[in-house]
Every structure is written in C-alpha cells, then in structure tokens.
Design a protein around this nucleic acid. Structure first.
Ligand SMILES: [Zn+2]
Ligand SMILES: [Zn+2]
Ligand SMILES: [Zn+2]
Ligand SMILES: [Zn+2]
Lengths: 127, 127
DNA sequence: TACATAATGTTATAATATAACAATAATTAA
DNA sequence: TTAATTATTGTTATATTATAACATTATGTA
C-alpha cells in the first residue's frame, strides 16, 4: 500500500507517459500540498525501491514500470531515442534471462542491473 | 590528440583507479590552473565522446576506459559493488556481441548502450 | 593570408539531490 | 490497549551536479 504522498507522486508519473523529472513532479504536486523537493525525493526513493517506478539514470528522470516482473527482480532495460528522447521499457524474456544469469569473470553474482540502449526511434530515423 | 585541459583531466581520471566525480577532479586540478567547473565538464564531455573515459551514470562519476574497443562502439558495461562502490568495466565478448546486435520489438536499432550491474564484490560478500 | 573550427577563460546561475531536526501516523508486540 | 517501533511527513537550509552566455585564444586548413 502506497502512502498519501507516494500515491500522489506515482499517479503523476503514471499519467505522464514519458519520463518526468523530480522538479517537474514537484511543480505538478504543489497544488496538492507537497511543497518541498525532499517530499518528492522520498516518495521517489520508495517507489523505485518497490519497483513501481524506475529511474532513467542517464536522464535523471522517472517512469512508471510497464512490466510486472521487474518489481521483484530489479532488472530493467530501456530504449532511449537520442533525438526525441522517447523512452520505452524493454520487455524481452531472452534478454532478461541472459542478463539475470550473467556472471563476470571475477565470479561476482549480481542482484540487479540497469541497461539503457540509445539510438533513433522509428519516427526519428525516417526524418 | 588531447588538448592541454583534456590531457590534465584524463591523467587524473586514469591515475584514480576508481570512479571520480567532476568536482573532485576540479579540486585536484586547481593547482594546474583549471579553476571553473565548466572547464572540467567540457573536457569530460570530449573524453566521453572519444571513448577515453566513461560516465558511471548511476554514480555521476567517471572512469578511464579499460578496454580498447569501446572507443568506437560506445558499448559499455560495468559491475558496481553496492557496499564498497568498487566499479569495474566488464570485458566480455559474448555479452557485447549479444547486446550490440540486440533489436527490440519495435525494430529500433541501437547505436550504443550502457549496462550497469549491481551486487556485492568478492571482498564484500565474504563479510 | 584568411577562414573555419576547436579549445579556453570567466562569471553567473540552473538543475538535481541530501542533511538535519521535529512532528505525526501506522504497525507490531507485550 | 498501551507501549514500543517503524514508516511517513513537514520544514528549512544547504550540498552537489551541470549548463548558459559571452569573450578570447589557439589550431587546422584552403
Ligand atoms: Zn519495470
Ligand atoms: Zn525519436
Ligand atoms: Zn571502455
Ligand atoms: Zn565491495
């Protein structure tokens, strides 16, 4: 169960349909009484922790999770268009299976990963 | 060929042997006459562009490239210890081959990717 | 030379994120 | 159901990361 602030902030992110930044969220929720950056960041931290949202690290922005399984596994993959900045979450069983079981040469076993692909989306590659 | 500032900043990063942050670099190069953040960020941008260094996006820090091939391909993968923050660049042909050729369902072809694995390094997993 | 491009220097400011402390709400254990 | 514990909230101040704008100098090239 999400707390009041968590729910407010999650709703904004989910409605956004595109990555949204913390201070843009803040601007959007000020009418609902959330006035300080920290209130936003705390909710974001929690939402990331429970897998309801993901942070797009290269863009410092946040999106709602579109899958069901990464809530547990913290295995995230995104495609990012370098022209229009469209971001979409990749859901590919083969890819996630491969990466989840990946072990590096030092024998380090990983608990989670984040993968960001960059390129041009369909629309932008036509232009 | 690196310019004067680029070389100074690259040397710092290479010597560091661990990810280093922009303002930490700035502190280290002030005795050499580089006084402003922008001077550091411009050199960093260029060094990232030519593949001499990589940015660890989840940590806002920079490391020298340990491979030879990602200078061209911009295909980067790192393992990050969540306890001691040790970062190492992964060099795994099978992995990079797989990811370079990855296509998502929308048929989007990618020019580059960045992958960050998180877990506990050998040392930290013993404790 | 003259033109273009890349790099530098400098000041100011924008954007992103956390520290520290106090109060309140929700959960759990006795 | 009271007490203890944990999670959440509110608030102010500040730290950290990054870029805008403009002027100047160096380097490469026709
Ligand atoms: Zn997800
Ligand atoms: Zn696009
Ligand atoms: Zn590299
Ligand atoms: Zn470690």
């Amino acid at each position: 169960m999400l707390s009041k602030n968590q729910q407010i902030i999650f709703d904004i992110i989910e409605k956004a349909k595109e990555p949204i930044k913390a201070y843009s969220i803040l601007f959007n929720v000020q009418k609902k009484g959330i006035k300080a950056p920290l209130q936003v960041y705390r909710a974001l931290d929690k939402l990331v922790e429970i897998g309801k949202i993901h942070k797009i690290e290269s863009r410092n922005s946040f999106v709602a999770c579109k899958n069901s399984n990464c809530q547990i596994s913290k295995a995230t993959a995104f495609s990012i268009c370098e022209s229009c900045e469209e971001v979409s979450e990749i859901s590919d069983n083969k890819l996630s299976k491969y990466l989840k079981s990946f072990q590096n040469k030092a024998g380090m076993k990983f608990k989670k990963y984040n993968l960001e692909f960059f390129g041009l989306c369909k629309k932008c590659s036509i232009k």
